[in-house]
Amino acid sequence: MPQIAQIADTYSSQIFWLLLTFGLVFFVIGLGMVPKVQGTADARDAKISGDLDAAKAAFARADEAEADYRVRDAQNRTAAQAVVAKAKSEAAKASETKLAAADADVASKIAAAEARIQAASNAALAEIETVAADAARDMVARISGVEASEDAARNAVKAALAHG
């Protein structure tokens, strides 16, 4: 086994070169380069976790803004509904008064027209009486030759119209 057979000849060379090479590895690579490599990885990890935190915070802000928006939206909706309801009731009231006024106007016009119609029909009736009385006197005079008085003719006509 050369490990044992050669130990007396080689141990010093083995130890010397191992210490030299491993020392170089440790000081140049281990202490000089590895911390930079690890630092890069750590910086990346820190950046990733920082970015994730920022994204989480942004999410939270967005949620907050949305909740805020919902609240304001609901408020605006109720306010708008109140305005609409008020306008509706005002419009209804205004149209009611207008309708009442128009009704009153129409009623008075109808009453006047009815009064006029009444007057016209009264006048017409009176005319008919006169005409009828004249006709009755004429008929009496022609038939009996008696001159009937105007009053008698009128009463007779009235009685006939009343019984009509």
């Binding site: 010093s12 060379s13 010397f16 070169w17 030299l20 090479t21 170089l24 590895v25």
Partner: peptide, 17 residues
């Protein structure tokens, strides 16, 4: 006084480094 010959073993140490 110690032998520090550059051996095939030392060569592989250097190669590994």
């Amino acid at each position: 006084g110690f032998n520090i010959a550059f051996t095939n073993s030392a060569l592989y140490m250097v190669l590994a480094a």
